[in-house]
Amino acid sequence: MGIVACTRCTKAWPLGTQVCGRCGHALVSRDRMSLQRVWAFWVLGVICYVPANIYPMLKTQTLFQVDESTIIGGAVELATHGNLGIAAIILFASVVIPLGKFWAVAFLALSVQQPTGRGRHQRQVLYEIVEYIGRWSMIDIFVVAILSSLVQLNTLASIHPGTAAMFFALSVIFTMLAAQAFDSRMIWDVQAKTKPTGDRGSET
């Protein structure tokens, strides 16, 4: 159709317009750099996720001993104390969601590189879930922050954040950026490519 649309305020402009005159957003018909940015942030996220699981997340100091627990170790400890529900929430927020996000972003990025017109709606839904749920991984960082400020009871007990907290936060932030860098319009382009008569610039 020879138009390019603003992905922020939905206004249409003639093809070749650089900046949206309504909201000032940069206009790109298809962001070719999008996938590169997605993969760059994705790799950073995965790299940060490794030390986040190796190093201790919490250092608990009680009267006679110092405990260092990793993310999974802490959840297992909670489970053995009978707090199955909380252990499940922590495992879900810190292990299942991050791993699921890595898989989902990689899957979406690969799926638009190898055109298949199938499952567009499912992939769109998957993308929306990834965008929505990614922030919730931050919950573990907040729990660490709350615990280490709350449990400062002189010699009786004190909790300090471990190195893993920083890597975990970075991993969550990078994965969020990866999801944001993904141009969801590419999911729908694949359909236009498989139909040679389709109008590539803007499918109607």
Binding site: M1, A5, D189
Partner: peptide, 9 residues
């Protein structure tokens, strides 16, 4: 109006 998510006009 163009859908920001899938680019349908």
């Amino acid at each position: 109006i163009v859908c920001p998510q899938c680019d349908a006009a």
